[in-house]
Write a protein that binds this DNA or RNA. Structure first.
Lengths: 340, 340
DNA sequence: GCCTGTTGATGACACGATTCAGCGGAGGCA
DNA sequence: TGCCTCCGCTGAATCGTGTCATCAACAGGC
């Protein structure tokens, strides 16, 4: 295998390096005849541009880094699809990095993206504050926070998690549940903390003692963690909660799985509200009531803000885009309407 | 923001460029005192290596491209996790590309990976034959087929889909079902064709007329496509099938959703077998019987073969790794054992 | 004091695309 | 004819790293 470069193309077409480069990047500046000759040479040699060389010259790459908490969670893959759509429109590609809720892995990927001189970074950080993010910004790589609160110092896109938590809890309260549990974690994750705060707010607003909320902190936001937490929920002494707000659908599915296995009727003995409304929520053992987030749009908005920051640094203003969540009611909180 | 290079580090540490490079790549060749001085300079300036320049020099990047049919399908994200594990061990990173079952997108990503001079490409191709793959190999980028049959010309990892299809259909036949449907598509996708062939084989072996198999071809392998196909299944004239083999769990979940909505009892009126045994299969409306594939190991094995091909080209022999699938029986094919 | 071997450091060169100052030639205008 | 402009093309310089032939210094053996 011989690697062919612009030099080879230029030689075959009988022009200079610069002309080949112009054909590739500013075709209008090249006379049609010459252009065709160069294109023919490219075709004949099977020339493919070397991105590394372009990047070296340009000083930065054309790759957006997207750092998410869990690739196994359809919420994030949907966000990724949105990012990819917006990126493709600008000729950019996306590199998906899975921090798996580990700050160590998160930092590893941030280093990697820095070494690659990434075009920009979209990140849902594990912890509230990660100094590495600020550091990367200072090095000239813009960042946008995804689904993670707001800061003045950079752009962010998010869904109002306090409102979401409120919607979920208010729905349970309206259905007559008084003993409510909140399940999620680690609590250091901002989304979890906000959704919990929202749930507490709804409880206070309903005039119920907020301490009636049973908090069950999980180590992760996966189906397996949900199953484990459900066990603890079943073990609650005294009056067991009759409704539970889960910080995401994965947890909710885990809880549902465990309850079904232990013959706890859902929603009869326990009503469950999920969060994210992933596609699988509607297909669950008992279709899940869930708080829907505009996942794809979230990704699109994040990428668009990033691109604006890079392409129009003069006029760019940091913006905080906040979407509104929406409650989707299904059978995990209301007795089945149809035959069963 | 000023970009700092080895030159700046060298100047500050009072050594030459080559020495800095040696500190980074062969620290043992540098005297301890010098090494410390260089490291201190690196630290003070916040120097970060420029990957683009390394790649340009090296001639190839340290990125493995993983091209999958659907990032939204947990099967592929699990494969990705396996790939990532094996890659991280060799200091490589992974770029995940979603062909979304479109040959056009697949080719787009292959071009991209070629421009990036990828370390190698792991791919589940959309169509049986894609000449671009052979072309990329000839350009010196090794490829490994993932979950897609076998060829002598390159490494591949797969799960025996014929056996898998056989397991699924045989299970239904053993439970007394005689009218069986197979649901999947497009049939051009090798996995689908093989699973179908396996199902036919089981039917023949059971002495049932294979033409009793109702084939429903879908346009994609998503939950939505499953719902649409279920509608067609319900519309079958005459004796409706009492058991259905789905080409993956996403389709099966779609079918289940549609049947539940239309009050068709599962498994009473229709038994459903899925494929892949993704985490959500066990958490479904009716826990899904499914054919389990070693997803993470599949990814690991693929990456390991690829790395072997690149690192030890002299001794490398193309291998075809074939895993055995395993049937996991749940309630979508057998009446619930517990209380309900 | 001379030779040899070893260790540690040097710095020019290569990788491949892009950029930009500059050059020749054609054409317009007075 | 002389001057100017515009178009199309040239080719040297550049980006930041890794490599390798080379060299200086020094220790040890005779």
């Amino acid at each position: 295998m011989v690697s062919v470069s612009v030099k080879d193309v230029a030689a075959l077409a009988g022009v200079s390096l610069g002309t080949v480069s112009n054909v590739l990047n500013r075709p209008d500046r090249v006379a049609p005849g010459t252009r065709d000759r160069v294109l023919a040479a490219i075709d004949e040699l099977g020339f493919v541009r070397n991105e590394a060389a372009r990047q070296l010259r340009a000083g930065h790459s054309r790759m957006i880094g997207l750092v998410v908490l869990d690739v196994g969670n359809p919420f994030f893959t949907d966000v990724a699809i949105g990012v990819e759509q917006a990126a493709a429109g600008a000729g950019l590609s996306v590199i998906l990095c899975n921090s798996a809720e580990s700050t160590e892995r998160e930092n590893h990927y941030l280093s990697l993206l820095q070494e690659h001189r990434a075009y920009g970074v979209l990140i849902t950080p594990v912890a509230e504050q990660n100094p590495r993010i600020e550091q990367i910004r200072r090095r000239g790589i813009p960042t946008v926070l995804v689904d993670h609160g707001t800061t003045r110092r950079q752009c962010s896109v998010s869904v109002d998690d306090v409102v979401g938590g409120e919607l979920a809890a208010a729905h349970l309260l309206a259905a007559g549940h008084e003993r409510i549990a909140f399940l999620g974690g680690p609590l250091g994750i901002k989304q979890v903390a906000d959704r919990l705060a929202g749930a507490r707010k709804a409880i206070r607003a309903a005039g119920v003692d907020p301490f009636r909320l049973t908090l069950i902190e999980t180590g992760a936001m996966t189906v397996a963690a949900g199953r484990a937490a459900a066990e603890r929920l079943r073990a609650v002494r005294g009056d067991r909660p009759t409704g539970v707000c889960c910080a995401n659908d994965m947890l909710a599915l885990g809880v549902l799985q465990d309850m079904t296995r232990h013959h706890v009727d859902v929603p009869g003995e326990l009503a469950i509200v999920g969060y994210d409304d992933i596609d699988f929520a509607a297909a669950a053992a008992v279709p899940l009531t869930s708080v829907r987030q505009p996942r794809v749009q979230l990704g699109e908005a994040a990428a668009t803000l990033l691109i604006d920051e890079v392409e129009r640094p003069a006029t760019h203003q940091h913006r905080q885009v906040v979407f509104e969540p929406e409650l989707v009611v299904r059978e995990s909180t209301t007795p089945a309407a149809g035959a069963r």
